[in-house]
Structures are given as C-alpha cells and as structure tokens.
Amino acid sequence: MSEFIWQDDYKIGHPTVDAQHQHLFDLANKIVEADSSDTLTHLFMLFYQHIREHFAAEEQLMKTYEYPDYTAHVATHNRMLDRLNEITQTIADRQWHSANIRIFISNWVLVHILEEDKLLGDYLKSRQGLNA
C-alpha cells in the first residue's frame, strides 16, 4: 500500500510541474518500500536526480515569468538539496532509517508544495495571458 498518496489538492495548475511532483510521489513510495540496500541506493539516486531536474525546471519557469519570490524559492530548493545530500550520506554509511524519507516527503508536501509551490502556481496563472 502506498504511503504517499497523490491528491488533486497538490496540483499547482502547471501540467509539467504537477506531473513531476506526482512522479516524485511514486519514487518516494518505492523508496520507503525498498527491501535491500542496493535497491534503496538505486531508487534514491533516481529520486535525487529527478528532484534536481524538477527544481531546475521550476526555477526556469520562475525566471521566464519573472517570479518575484524567485530568490527565496531557490533558497528553499537549496536547503532541500542539502537535506537530500545528508540522507544520501546516511544511505552510503548504511545508517538509513525509512523515517528520514517519510519526514522529508511530508515536509516537502506540507510546506513546499502546498504553500510555496501553490503561490508559484497562482502567480503563473495570473501571468498566463501575458507570456503565453
């Protein structure tokens, strides 16, 4: 059974960003269900790579549409990447605890997607007709 359930409430209204977020949910579920260290390492590498690609795409959107909170949003991304690097090290050291990814995803959903990314989505909707 999936631990992280995608809901329409998580959508910000941008199809690419929403699809990337949903894919991250899928990867997170696979990570918490990993049954071996090798599987966990592989899945977490995919998760990290996808997050980096997602952040780059999101940051490009913010630049394109001149998002006023760009700097603060990117700083949040960087803090999340720092946390992912810490988790990666715990995996490499075989000190992994599945609670780490649960906490990270919960915080990411509750704070980043539902608050910060939603603000970005609202801004993009307001600009939709200007730079379409």
Rank of each mutant, 00 (worst) to 15 (best):
D82P: 01
A75F: 12
D117K: 00
M62W: 01
Q89K: 05
H50C: 14
S98C: 06
A57I: 00
N131I: 01
E53Q: 11
K125E: 14
G121H: 03
Q20M: 03
N107T: 06
H73F: 03
L124P: 00
F47A: 01
R83I: 05
L46R: 06
Y123W: 12
N85I: 08
F47S: 00
L84F: 04
R94M: 10
W108V: 00
D9Q: 15
D8R: 02
E115K: 15
L130Y: 14
D117I: 01
W6L: 02
A28Q: 06
W108E: 02
L24N: 04
A92F: 09
D122I: 12
L114M: 15
A57N: 07
Q7H: 11
Y65Q: 01
A28F: 05
L40V: 08
T41Q: 13
V17N: 00
R127T: 06
A72G: 09
V109K: 07
L46D: 07
I101Q: 13
Y70F: 15
E86P: 02
K11C: 14
Q89D: 05
D117M: 03
N131Y: 10
D69T: 05
K30G: 03
G121C: 02
I103C: 04
L40G: 03
P15A: 04
L27H: 02
D35L: 08
R79Y: 04
K11E: 14
E116N: 10
L124W: 00
Q95W: 08
A99I: 07
D35V: 09
W108D: 01
A75C: 10
P68L: 12
H73R: 04
L81T: 10
G121K: 02
A132G: 11
N131R: 05
T41M: 11
K30Q: 15
T76R: 04
L61G: 09
